[in-house]
Design a protein around this nucleic acid. Sequence first.
DNA 1: CATAGTTTTGACCATATGGTCAGAAAATAC
DNA 2: GTATTTTCTGACCATATGGTCAAAACTATG
Lengths: 207, 207
Amino acid sequence: MARAASTKGPTRIQREKTEAILEAALEVFATYGFRGSTLDQIAAQSGISKPNILYYFDGKETIHAELLARLLETWLEPLEHMSDKGDPVEEICAYVARKLAMSRDYPRQSRLFANEVLQGAPRILDELAGPLKALTDEKAALIQGWIDAGLIKAIDPYHLIFSIWSTTQHYADFDVQVRTVLADKADDRFKKAAAFLDTMYRATLTP
Amino acid sequence: MARAASTKGPTRIQREKTEAILEAALEVFATYGFRGSTLDQIAAQSGISKPNILYYFDGKETIHAELLARLLETWLEPLEHMSDKGDPVEEICAYVARKLAMSRDYPRQSRLFANEVLQGAPRILDELAGPLKALTDEKAALIQGWIDAGLIKAIDPYHLIFSIWSTTQHYADFDVQVRTVLADKADDRFKKAAAFLDTMYRATLTP
DNA sequence: CATAGTTTTGACCATATGGTCAGAAAATAC
DNA sequence: GTATTTTCTGACCATATGGTCAAAACTATG
């Protein structure tokens, strides 16, 4: 059996294979969603046979759950960084830039999340209602504090955060559309997007 | 056989059943995407037996194609309305409002589209590269004209349009997340969103 | 109501899919 | 090298799924 000895950690092979499986599964689940993905696709993508995949993971569900768990660890991080130390406008714009960079560097994670939420977030709702809501409430309160202090314009903090999530994730989730519409101008889309979003949020926030 | 007499139009039953099937299919495809949806789900949702569904449509693919075709007819309409007749800021803000209203009134269509694009737009890429790109190019040029005339601030027209698409569709595609984060404050989310977006785009555009 | 045309269904099929298992192959321990 | 443990695979299974078909049920029309 895999899922290894509690005394000694996982073997090298266990680490390598589970990583390879998760890497392939991310590719597949991010593209087709949970129901639309098959173990055979993950097997083909990873070059690991289906029974061997099931030697390392209890089943399709377990692989997906592991990916979501890892995702959420890093997903909230950029927002956590937003603090009351710096200038409010700079803090928010830096958050926008970090979030956009994540869409550029981890588009599959973004799509995995998008697929899950689009389908009603059946396996992640608790995380949304728990950690995500808690963090959002906290940061919304921080933004409200800035507004009350007259440091930024009066806008709804929650919808500001929603707009940041949507505009930045759009470049990962709708990448095909963005590239198709931009056609030959698509190469520097992330640079242009960064510039546009910076301009927009400065205009929106600067009192 | 259904798919009816070319002389006489479709019968009442044909119209009712095809509509019922498409209505149910929209519900299912919007939630699970093409690959994740099954004819049995559509059958259960519509109360029409699977063989009977296949009497009206050639197959799963055909139903999906019909939905996408109908979707695109109406999807581009709000943007088409944006004209050079009125004040630029008002024209763009009106477009934002119309697009947000579509997320509120037709969330399933938005999710159907999102699922399709998320999965690489395999059955809709031509429409993106054709009509959608053409319309976007046209309206981007219109916006650029306003910029050149000094009527709005200098921003990238394409990324402005992307931001409008993403912020408005977010309220349909990520509805679960929005409602979860807002919790008891979720009821007037569309009103609040409209106000926020209006404020943001006025700040972004007004010279 | 009888007939022709339309609509619906139960039974069925081929393939896909998630998953199991006994044993082979490979790695590790001694 | 041999014994032991870990890793891997081919063959297999039960169920799900897209789709077919002949015949039954229904509807409209003369």
